[in-house]
């Protein structure tokens, strides 16, 4: 089984979701990677360490890396024909797999949490209905098969392999797809770890009361615990916090050591994104809230009263 992984990197280092895919892929077959961006030598060394033998690459020339990634992989497929191409279900991974799927007319299985290879057949497992039901789907058409896998589905482990051989690829015709240009990067200051990589996540929902309460309740507690802050879909929809903070089915999957849900009722939409956490604390006014069904410690109470006291007590301890 020849597997190609769409690699993404941040400041010259592959992102964790890329390393997770490489780790899984090398257990299933021969692995190569495709990458669009800078620091190619550093990325080739890092993906090699996780099992990729070759790194196909192309310059983004200011276009969105996922969009260019689709053209890059289409060019690789034209000569190398991998059996399976794996993408992380990230912003750029979704651009890449969507574009590629239409370009080469292959279906894509998304939101995977498992990949099973049996001879020539490939199946992807996905969770539906908030993780209540697990569905296995098998590709029945011609290769290459395309799958997008949710971050945190596998554990990244290095294999100690040598740096991947770099191969620059000529993209050929990209049509109007590369007309969308990135004019500027805006980096927002963030204290503490990334949401998906944090060992502690504190998330807020409607129960925090208002957009203004997010900082003093959710961010403050997250910072005190050296964790990251997240959110339920309800307050993202309400415009209180950006989409990048959303935990759940249509947001991110997190699996921290500790997840603290503040004022979150626990719609299935949310539960699927966090119920894999090692430990869960929930604070919510409604004793019947579904979040309590997954909580190791549930506090039936007003977040706006409990959390300030908790923050005060933690500050007194430190």
């Amino acid at each position: 089984m020849k597997i190609l992984v769409f690699a993404e990197a941040d400041n010259g280092a592959p992102v964790t979701s890329t390393l997770e895919l490489l780790t899984k892929a090398r257990a299933l077959g021969d692995v190569e990677a495709a990458y669009v961006g800078s620091d190619v030598d550093a990325v080739a060394a890092a993906v090699g360490e996780y099992g990729a033998t070759k790194l196909y690459t192309a310059d983004s020339q200011g276009s969105l890396v996922g969009v260019v990634g689709a053209s890059l992989i289409a060019a690789v497929i034209a000569v190398g024909q991998p059996d399976l191409v794996l993408f992380a279900q990230t912003y750029d991974g979704r651009d890449a797999v969507g574009r590629l799927s239409a370009r080469i007319d292959r279906p894509v299985l998304t939101n995977g949490y498992s990949v099973t290879v049996d001879g020539d057949s490939v199946s992807i497992g996905a969770q539906v209905f908030g993780g209540r039901v697990l569905v296995e789907t098998q590709f029945t058409g011609p290769t290459p098969h395309l799958a997008a896998i949710r971050p945190k589905s596998f554990v990244a482990e290095p294999s100690g392999g040598a740096a991947a051989t770099i191969e620059q690829v000529d993209l050929g015709e990209t049509g109007r797809s590369t007309e969308a240009k990135v004019l500027d990067h805006h980096v927002e200051e963030r204290e503490g770890p990334k949401l998906e990589e944090a060992t502690i996540v504190v998330s807020g929902g409607r129960g925090i009361g208002s957009a203004e309460s997010y900082g003093p309740l959710v961010d403050e507690l997250a910072q005190l615990l050296k964790g990251a802050s997240g959110a339920s879909r309800a307050i993202v929809d309400a415009g209180w916090v950006p989409y990048s903070k959303q935990v759940g089915q249509t947001g991110k999957t997190v699996k921290p050591k500790l997840y603290i849900a503040l004022g979150i009722s626990g719609a299935t939409q949310h539960l699927v994104g966090m119920k894999g956490s090692d430990n869960i604390i929930a604070i919510n006014k409604d004793a019947e809230a579904p979040i309590f069904s997954v909580a190791d410690l549930g506090v039936v109470g007003d977040v706006q009263k409990v959390v300030p006291k908790l923050i005060e007590a933690l500050k007194a301890k430190s």
Binding site: E179, A180, V182, H185, V187, E188, Y243
Partner: peptide, 14 residues
């Protein structure tokens, strides 16, 4: 303004 993990990118197209 395109949402990114770090903040946002300004992206333009015809």
């Amino acid at each position: 303004q395109r949402q990114t993990e770090a903040g946002y990118d300004v992206v333009e197209a015809s």
